[in-house]
Design a protein around this nucleic acid. Structure first.
Lengths: 136, 136
DNA sequence: GGCCGGTTGAGACTCGGTATCATTCGCCGA
DNA sequence: TCGGCGAATGATACCGAGTCTCAACCGGCC
């Protein structure tokens, strides 16, 4: 993750959060996961700061929020343009998916329901190529 | 909502929850909303029972869970077959949307990412025809 | 009617997330 | 380089959603 993903002051705790996220690779993570990581590495960061930094990264588009099927709120590091995520239900890895064909879907829903669609969220769950190859 | 939406015993509290949901019309609601409704109508139902009944309705397919953009968990009454929801961000009304064109999207995502997609969730946010007509 | 086991509800608990506020520290201007 | 201002921090209290426990209750079958 790029280090200037945050507007405002570049502080030690913020950099630490960004590093923790970068160190996690492409999986999704929760605020609690980051707090655990920090503790395990001996990095002292307040819980409130983790939530605040996550919010900043969210508005800057460096991460995006995911709603897992079990209702949990997770985050994934990602690029800024509008897109969606495929999440591997076995290893947790997430990949970006361009908006692409979804526009047609949105248009046909508008036609069918009369709603004017402003925003949408698509989340896809499945198994990544590696897990697909690996024995269950 | 049909009254036999629940497997197991047909008890007073369960019927009360089903009635409360039916009385809400097509909007989305949270477990807390139902608890408020119940209290306002003088119906005594334990919080735990509301959550339990909601779970039952969820597995029976009579309601579905929605993740609102603000991270809140809401529910909508709906039919059982696989579909998605458009939610009006002004009045909260929700309409069902058939799966339809989304299959193509899922297939093209599979091709692009190598993932095998098992499940997906699509949520659309916008304004319903009534709110669109009404002055802001 | 009576019994059995599923269901209920009060309340304690967990956990994600927010609010508060005194303290700390990044950063800009001199 | 230094000082000061205001943003950021973090400890802590708090809140609300959801779960767990367990004794009491009651629906439905014999």
């Amino acid at each position: 993750m790029r280090s200037r993903a945050i507007d405002g002051r570049l502080t030690r705790p913020r950099a630490a959060v960004v590093n923790l996220i970068a160190a996690r690779g492409s999986g999704h993570f929760t605020a609690g996961d980051l707090a655990d990581d920090a503790r395990r590495r001996g990095v002292a960061i307040g819980r409130a700061t983790i939530f605040r930094t996550l919010d900043l990264l969210l508005v800057s588009g460096a991460i995006e929020r995911l709603d897992l099927p079990d209702g949990e709120h997770a985050y994934v590091a990602c690029r800024a343009s509008h897109h969606h995520h495929v999440v591997c239900t076995r290893c947790g890895r997430a990949a970006d998916v361009p908006d692409g064909d979804l526009r047609n879907v949105v248009r046909s829903v508008e036609r069918a329901t009369g709603f004017t669609i402003g925003d949408h969220r698509l989340e896809l769950y499945g198994t990544c190529p590696d897990c697909e190859r690996a024995p269950r």
